[in-house]
């Protein structure tokens, strides 16, 4: 295993992709798209920002837990060998995050609840005087359709929870199709700003831009959202056009091609 500091975030993101492909491959399908879109987001977060033990990590959409698991070994949160049990019977590494899920402080299989959890953790940090503790909450753009997210956004701004940072994976993907074809969320940044948040709208596959945004988010006294514009197909050229980003089908031949592509890039 390579130490985080020996990895650039961009390379770390491909490590996450490769692990995610290997985790999904035995099942033939799964939440690979979520890992592909959020790989740079997790890689950047885990490189010089999120400090386990000091900070809290919320992965609101439980379907993204694959990315948190795949990123966890470098952060010392999970042994890489454990990843092989992902999605199998009796494994704590369930495909949709649960209370058993390691490597995160909170995850929610029912969408839209994570930001409230993040607000609660930030409030607890404040009440218990844990200065310097940050709460990072990974949300997906589809979740913004849930009203509870906006209840939590109002609460966090009103209570000036400046230690709370949302990492929004704006991959324009939900079960029924592109988010933009189902609900107009734009202007996403404008919505958060009007709720009293600092918003940073960036290319979610550009690790330098993500890094800058996370620094700016931490410096801002308001709660902040990093809107990461991403694609569920990113970083895996072998995927066929039109693959369902929410739940990718990965037959053996495609899995082998995907592993070859990623191993070649990491070689």
């Amino acid at each position: 295993m390579t130490a985080t500091n020996a990895l650039t975030p961009a390379r770390y993101a491909d490590v996450i992709r490769l692990r995610a492909v290997r985790m999904v491959a035995p099942h033939g399908f799964g939440y690979l798209g979520q890992a592909l879109s959020s790989a740079e987001l997790f890689a950047t977060l885990y490189t010089g920002h999120y400090v386990p033990g000091r900070d809290s990590l919320v992965v609101s959409p439980g379907h993204y837990i694959i990315a948190a698991f795949a990123a966890a070994p470098e952060a010392g949160l999970l042994d890489e060998e454990e990843l092989a049990s992902y999605g199998f019977d009796e494994s704590a590494l369930e495909a949709i995050g649960t209370e058993r899920s390691p490597a995160v402080d909170l995850t929610c299989g029912s969408l839209g609840m994570g930001l409230s959890g993040g607000a609660g953790l930030a409030l607890a940090d404040r009440l218990q005087g844990r200065d310097g503790a940050r709460v990072y909450a990974v949300l997906s753009d589809g979740e913004l359709e849930e009203g509870q997210v906006w209840e939590a956004a109002l609460f966090a701004a009103h209570h000036r929870l400046g230690m709370l940072t949302v990492l929004l994976d704006a991959n324009d993907s939900q079960v029924d199709g592109p988010v933009s074809s189902i609900t107009t969320l734009e202007p996403v940044a404008g919505k958060w700003e009007s709720f009293g948040w600092a918003a940073f709208d960036v290319d979610g596959h550009d690790t330098a831009a993500l890094d800058d945004a996370l620094r700016a988010a931490a410096a801002d006294p308001r709660p902040a959202v990093v809107i990461a514009r991403t694609s569920t197909m990113h970083g895996l050229a072998v995927l066929p056009d039109g693959a369902d980003g929410h739940f990718i089908t990965l037959p053996d031949s495609l899995a082998e091609a995907a592993i070859r592509e990623l191993e070649a890039r990491l070689a």
Binding site: D105, L106, M113, S116, G117, G118, A119, G120, L121, L123, A124, D125, L127, Q128, G147, Q148, E151, A152, L154, F155, H158
Partner: peptide, 25 residues
Amino acid sequence: ERFIHAGMAEANMVSMAGALARRGF
């Protein structure tokens, strides 16, 4: 100092309460 106005937002209130309970409250 131990009183929190959640506003008319019961869903957020309950999920936040869960998070506070995780931290020993």
